[in-house]
């Protein structure tokens, strides 16, 4: 019984950490225009829209966060093997990882922008200085929380996988959650505020992203500020739910039917979410959607 109470406590803590990680990850990727909205940032100068948006595409979010979290976990593992204190090992491992992330971010921005010289897109050094440090800070929060979750799973819950492979798996999950949940809000709502709500992006509007702010020129920090309100929170909720429900079903039902209990509960959770998703989608289409029958003139 004590084990289960401890397990539930770890589950709650991991869920809370995951919520913070998801929110930080989405804000970081939006400031860097990573993920699918990046294609429009990349396209804009080619259509004649020179902008001051940070354009750092290291890879898609899942592989990139797979690397950051696996690297954070790998370095932590190495420091733990050298008998370092766990908290110190995690902080040090994540800090070195974020140094690598920052280097990748600067080279991505410089490379992408220099390759667009034909269209007159200049390299803005102030963008490089101010945005890279902000993305590094957000990435540190995301990676630190994820590596801590992996450490808790490994040491407190006795997960059989070693730390680096847990970092690999949960890093990809974190990137996928942030990419799937947060990006529509940044890509469709923020980049295309000049389009009619729900209109999608017609070919004629491709690359015509919003480049000017309420006062002056818009940069990526404005985008991070905007998406942190709803997009970041939604991504945090998504990743928090994933981690919490995954651990919850394992802690409570692992002993039922020699492990089959946890698998059955996992499938039940997926079914429940499918029903809920379908309900929300139908409701949203009915309430807001353009997919209704065209009105007769």
């Amino acid at each position: 019984m004590e084990n289960i109470v401890l397990g539930i406590g770890i589950t709650a803590l991991a869920g809370a950490l995951a919520a913070v990680a998801g929110a930080a990850e989405d804000t970081e990727s939006n400031i860097g225009s990573q993920g699918d909205p990046n294609s429009q940032v990349q396209l804009a100068p080619q259509m004649g829209y020179i902008h001051r948006i940070f354009n750092k595409a290291v890879a898609g979010e899942p592989p990139a966060y797979g690397l950051w979290c696996a690297l954070g976990a790998g370095l932590t593992w190495a420091f733990l093997a050298m008998q370092l204190n766990a908290v110190l090992a995690i902080v040090l491992g994540c800090a070195i990882t974020i140094f690598v992330q920052g280097v990748y971010a600067t080279t991505a921005y410089l490379g992408r922008t220099a390759s667009l010289a034909k269209f007159g897109q200049p390299v803005y050094i102030d963008i490089l200085k101010s945005m890279t440090s902000v993305t590094m800070a957000h990435a540190f929060v995301a990676v630190f929380c994820t590596v801590t979750i992996c450490y808790l799973m490994n040491s407190a819950l006795g997960h059989p996988f070693p730390l680096p492979i847990l970092g690999f798996i949960w890093g990809i999950a974190l990137g996928a959650a942030g990419s799937a949940t947060g990006n529509p809000y940044y890509g469709k709502e923020r980049q295309y505020q000049n389009q009619k709500f729900g209109a999608g992006v017609p070919i004629a509007a491709s690359g015509n992203i919003v480049r000017y702010a309420e006062a002056g020129v818009r940069n990526s920090l404005d985008n991070g500020w905007f998406t942190a309100k709803l997009g970041g929170a939604a991504s945090g909720l998504c990743f928090g739910f994933i981690v919490f429900l995954e651990l919850w079903r394992t802690v409570l039902f692992e002993k039922v039917g020699a492990g089959w209990g946890a698998i059955v509960v996992g499938i039940l959770i997926i079914l429940v979410f499918m029903v809920v998703d379908r309900f929300i989608e139908v409701w949203a289409r009915k309430t807001y959607g353009p997919y209704t029958k065209p009105e007769e003139a």
Partner: peptide, 16 residues
């Protein structure tokens, strides 16, 4: 090399 290839290398400038 990026400085060599870039269209311009600007600091704190508006959109041209």
């Amino acid at each position: 090399l990026s400085k060599r290839d870039a269209a311009a290398w600007l600091d704190l400038s508006p959109i041209p």
